[in-house]
Each structure stands twice: as C-alpha cells, then as structure tokens.
Amino acid sequence: MFEEPIRRRGLFSLTPLIDVVFQLLLFFMLTTTFMQAQMLTVTTPAASDGGLPQDANVVEIWLMADGSTRVAEKPVTPESLGDALKAVLGGRIDLTVSIFAEKGSRTQAFVSAIEAARQAGVKNVATARVDKFKP
C-alpha cells in the first residue's frame, strides 16, 4: 500500500498575530478621545466687589442664583440672551458689558453670557461676583 503523504503545516500560524492586532485595535478604540475642547478667552477680574464701572455706558447682565439671567434688569431665557443683549446695545459695541454672577449661579450661564457679549461684538466685558442682588 501507499504511505500517506505527510501533511506539512504552513510556515507559521497567523492566529497570534491576529490576536495581537485585535488587542491593538481595542486599545486604540478605547483610549482615543474624539472630543476636542474649545477655548474661550476671558479677562480675569480684579479682586474687589462693586469695583465695576456703573454708568450709562454699561449694560449689565445678571446671573441669578435660581439659574435665570437678566439683561438690563429684564429677565431673559437662555435662548434669547444674545438677541436681548443686541437689542439693548443697539449696535453700540463701544459699550461695556458687565456680567455679575450672584452666589449660586452656574458656570454654564457665565460662559453663555460671555459668549453672548462677544458675539454681539462688544470689546469690553467685565466680570464680577456679588453675594445678593438688591433690585
């Protein structure tokens, strides 16, 4: 009878290579972050309460402790903040916008107020914190 031919294996097995490649793939999928943070430049405030200019050339944004926002003492919704500010400014970008954050107001409201002022074209944006508004 004939002898059965000896079956030779391939040069090397690809299985460990594929294992490693999948490990690499998993590693990169889990560690990479696609979220890119944006940067918003803000001038740091001087350490004093009530030191901001308060005259006719200033538009005030109040960030209240209950989460609401007021532009020139009138309550506005977060969506209408930009339009309300533009309406109050009336195109006068030489005015100063002062943002007062009451104790208990949140960072998101603060960022939105700064962006609204910047998007309205205002050059001077001042910020300060206050304990409690006295209307």
Binding site: T44, A46, A47, E102, S105, R106, T107, Q108, F110, R129
Partner: peptide, 20 residues
C-alpha cells in the same frame, strides 16, 4: 476646565486669584 454646574462665583474667585 470648569464643570458646567460649578458655582460661577467660585470660578470668579479663582480668576481673581489668577489676576493677583
């Protein structure tokens, strides 16, 4: 890198310290 719910007055306190 401040949390969106961080108190704005704390953020301003920190910014005042940075100004100093």
């Amino acid at each position: 890198s401040a949390d969106l719910n961080a108190p704005a007055d704390s953020l301003l306190t920190l910014m005042e310290a940075l100004r100093k």
